[in-house]
Write a protein that binds this DNA or RNA. Structure first.
Lengths: 192, 192
DNA sequence: ATTTTTTACTAGACAGTGTCAAGTATGAAT
DNA sequence: ATTCATACTTGACACTGTCTAGTAAAAAAT
């Protein structure tokens, strides 16, 4: 399918894996399928990834880096908050997001570079909570409010992406507006 | 391992599957492994479940029924809310919960009895939101607030169970108190 | 310029998987 | 006594991840 016989096989395999994840979920990613899609032998990907979870780790690393960018990017409206960026990232990058949030696919502890990217994204969220709470915020409060903020964004993202919410809340014409409405109150309550 | 040669094979297989899911996640559930654990041939479970996703559907059906019970059960404190019940259910029944929230494992639409149980649990949540908002609540507001409430509970549950939150927020001595703190503000904001 | 090493693969095999097809033993119904 | 459904067992097939052992070509070392 794509151009093999080069260092870019890594890129090709990764793209194929992400595409499969977006279309059918991470479990559908198979070593042999991505090889087939790249037009190489079933063993070729092993030269670029130690094993199947190595592919997942690479997707995580890339995904968390892109998530950090998305969280830091200027938001379209002053009324929009970081949770919205999180949810939009998830919906726009389902292939990456599904892998990133499946702890069982790869142990981040075993892949330091992926772990670093995940940490960075988390730190961005913590900083946002701190800035919402103001300077002299109690560290315990920061902890619970960070957990809260992540929960809201993550919960909405996963429910919209794969969960039963999609089925239940059918007939949402303007998804962006819906997301905005759901998260508006959420973040407002942190300030109070 | 358990007593085969009876209708209770179904129960035995189901228990084995839930146990595996709790220990290693739903992907570790294998037709042949549960058969082995039940002490029967690799094909025996097929008499009780159409295929692998049939097992997942059965776990969903059972899980959603138990979730409904948990949501309706009297709560320990007047200060405690339905989201807390949801999160506690998830943490106490990880084997079921992990399967219930993985839409890719089985298509609920194909298993009416499982679908019915899921619908019932969802309706309980909607009713709670309605009662929090009061009688004359706008249906659009009910929709967003239901999504919000589910997102908070679901997000916290999945993050605590499998997500990176466990790693990030290490050193939580009293988990119940933490959950309570995170969700207290959340539900309070619905009333306002 | 020749040898060695490294890179980027290919080819084959093995154990494990889900599941289709076909057989068997046992109890109930006719 | 025969039929029939239940609850299995056995065997096979295609598929999977991954181990081992090649190979062909380019880069590095001599």
């Amino acid at each position: 399918m794509a151009s093999p016989k080069s260092e870019s096989l890594r890129r090709t395999v990764l793209d194929a894996a992400v595409a499969i994840s977006a279309a059918s979920g991470p479990d559908a990613i198979s070593m042999r399928e991505v090889a087939r899609e790249a037009g190489v032998s079933h063993q070729a990907p092993y030269h670029h990834f130690t094993d199947r979870s190595g592919i997942f780790a690479a997707i995580c690393e890339e995904g968390f880096r892109q998530l950090s960018e998305a969280l830091l990017a200027p938001r379209p409206s002053i009324d929009s908050n970081m949770c919205e960026s999180y949810v939009h990232f998830a919906l726009q990058n389902p292939g990456h997001f599904r892998v990133m949030m499946r702890n069982d696919l790869c142990q981040l502890a075993d892949y330091p570079s992926a772990r670093t990217e995940a940490d960075r994204a988390f730190d961005i969220l913590v900083d946002e909570v701190k800035s919402l709470l103001g300077e002299g915020a109690d560290s315990e409060v920061v902890k619970t409010q960070t957990a809260y903020m992540w929960s809201v964004g993550h919960g909405l993202a996963t429910l919209l992406l794969d969960g039963p919410l999609e089925i239940k809340l059918e007939g949402i014409d303007d998804m962006n507006a819906f997301i905005h409405q759901v998260l508006r109150t959420a973040v407002a309550s942190i300030r109070a």
